[in-house]
Nucleic acid binder design. Structure first.
Lengths: 332, 332
DNA sequence: CATGGTTCTGTGAACGTTCACAGACTGAAA
DNA sequence: TTTCAGTCTGTGAACGTTCACAGAACCATG
């Protein structure tokens, strides 16, 4: 009734546990006779290796933890996470590595993550949307645990390898496009200024607009739909003659669209709205959003590769920056 | 430099490892003198228990696996998953149980999950959107591993405890409401007929409409936005004088709205559209969706509770069915 | 003062692997 | 025939815990 152990397999195959272990771990030096006997024994007994016992001696866990750093409520509102998770799970599964999900919304959560990693329960860490100054990032660096970030950890770009879309150039593409369309009063709703997306998409915006990008035309959001609504309201109040707005995420752009509709401004006739992400919300709004597509799947892939490289003891080539593309729809 | 073990703590505290272990596991019978010495030693050494070693002897892993069963591409398109994950992670974290995420999109994935569970790597399993006839469900039942489903596993309602929203009554609420609004030709786009949401939301629909719910008025989708588009197109072709449609999910309803707009039908004047879920897409469409709110967070909570009960060796009280509410917006 | 029940502590064995090592067997070359 | 390298195998120790057990120390009771 008990789960079979390597001893049971060895006995059934008429060899020693050492030989079984060698076969399991892909060592050479296993005779074909032994191989077939063991393989049959495994099939017969339904043996599955006990990872705990293995981890105990190898000091490897065969699992990676993904840490989601947004405050819990907003966390999943952003559809981008899904892609990243999906890709990560698939790639890791190929190496038979499992993915543990943890949240780091408050300090208690963060301590839990630190304890988990410090306890050696993960071979590596994937950081999602970690904000600048996060203590967790410091601890990871100090511990020397393989880590990677999807989107840079501001202030730790050197220590923590990362993959990201070219936020700055993406923002330039959108802003340039709005200018080319003849828009004169172009504002922006940014992300939080302690995230790379927040910082760099604003930089791209000012790169193109130069001194025209006055303080009044810049307002800050926190990636949520709601902050898009209120940000747009602020802009309408401060700059009534606004004729375009570059919103740093689709979700916030959806919020901005609501506010504009309530205010009676037509999109795109009166005000053009550009988003960022090309997430699924971009096509569920009306009018559908012109936006910047991030190659999210490829970013996630690159990030996982960076992590696996470190776990394998190689030096990762960081950062990996991937190009964005402008997707024109109805809102501009 | 090595990670400290329980021996190091014991030595530092001047007691034996047995005493440290007892303190760690909350046994009584530890003197206060020993307690303070050990606590200081733990703080000094930065000791963290090695879960692998613990699991090896206790046969408990301190982790639970959540299995997502949709084909990978559609998987996360549905915003409902996010809530479930979030709630589950939070509740499990309180008991210091970690959440491993796995996909079961194809047979290879499913075998991986089976191997994982059979290997004893999880204390329990949370099934998300598992379809009828899934081999994995059978294996889990056979293995006797604690399991729970969010939404019933069709055909395994008895063996696998579950929590769910009252899909049938929710569908009745929406259909009744459409009738009361004076709609005469009411159609429906259902979910897949091997999922409880697909089956029961259709049942609720026919409960209210009785013989009026003719074959022509029923078409099937697969929860994706795209299937909502094509389903709506079929309905417009088969039943040109349609004046209302109950779509079994918000995401499919968003698709239906696109098709209606393309076809030049006004919503809600010409055709009323009712969704289901009250997910975030419901408020990002235009017009915003009238829909049925599922108490998703509470469903997830109940499901986790059912699982924990089983892990603790109790008999879970399944099923837990929670009430839905009608949310009226602009599309009806 | 003996008895007996608490409370507390240390110890050996076990959990199921991997790894290093030593040794046995093979076949080819000298 | 001897030697040697290459191939294959079994064994003991170790990984870091928990658990059952035995025994020590304490206190109250008769």
């Amino acid at each position: 009734m008990k789960r079979p152990t390597i001893h049971d397999v060895a006995a059934a195959a008429g060899v020693s546990r050492g030989t079984v272990s060698r076969l399991l771990n892909g060592d050479r030096y296993v005779s074909t006779a032994a191989r077939v006997a063991i393989e049959r024994a495994i099939a017969e007994t339904g043996y599955v290796v006990n990872r705990n016992a293995r981890s105990l001696v190898t000091q490897r866990t065969g699992s990676v933890v993904m840490v989601l750093s947004e405050p819990q409520e907003h966390l999943f509102e952003d559809p981008n996470y899904s892609t990243t998770m999906r890709v990560a799970i698939r790639m890791l599964a190929e190496r038979d590595v499992s993915l543990v999900l943890m949240m780091a919304g408050d300090d208690g959560d963060r301590e839990r993550v630190i304890r988990y990693v410090r306890g050696g329960h993960a071979d590596g860490v994937v950081l999602l949307s970690t904000h600048a100054g996060d203590r967790m990032a410091d601890v990871l660096v100090e511990l020397g645990v393989p880590a990677v970030a999807v989107g840079a950890v501001v202030g730790r770009e050197r220590q923590i390898p990362y993959a990201a879309a070219d936020d700055r150039e993406g923002a330039r593409q959108m802003t340039r496009y709005l200018v080319e369309q003849g828009r004169r009063r172009i504002a922006t709703i940014t992300g939080p200024m302690d995230t790379p997306g927040g910082i760099q998409r604003l930089e791209g915006f000012t790169d193109v607009l130069g001194r025209k990008a006055s303080k009044k035309l810049i307002t800050h959001g926190d990636w949520t739909r709601l902050s898009g609504e209120s940000g747009m309201a602020r802009l309408l109040q401060d700059v009534p003659d606004i004729d375009a707005v570059f919103v740093a995420s689709d979700l916030m752009a959806a919020g901005a669209l609501s506010t504009l509709r309530m205010a009676g401004r037509r999109v795109p006739e009166d005000v053009a709205v550009g988003g960022f992400d090309d997430s699924s919300v971009a096509v569920s709004t009306h009018p559908e959003l012109t936006t910047i597509r991030q190659p999210l799947a490829r970013v996630a892939e690159a990030a996982v590769r960076l992590l696996l490289a470190q776990i394998d003891g190689e030096r990762p080539e960081s950062p990996v920056i991937l190009p964005t593309t402008l997707v024109i729809r109805e809102s501009t």
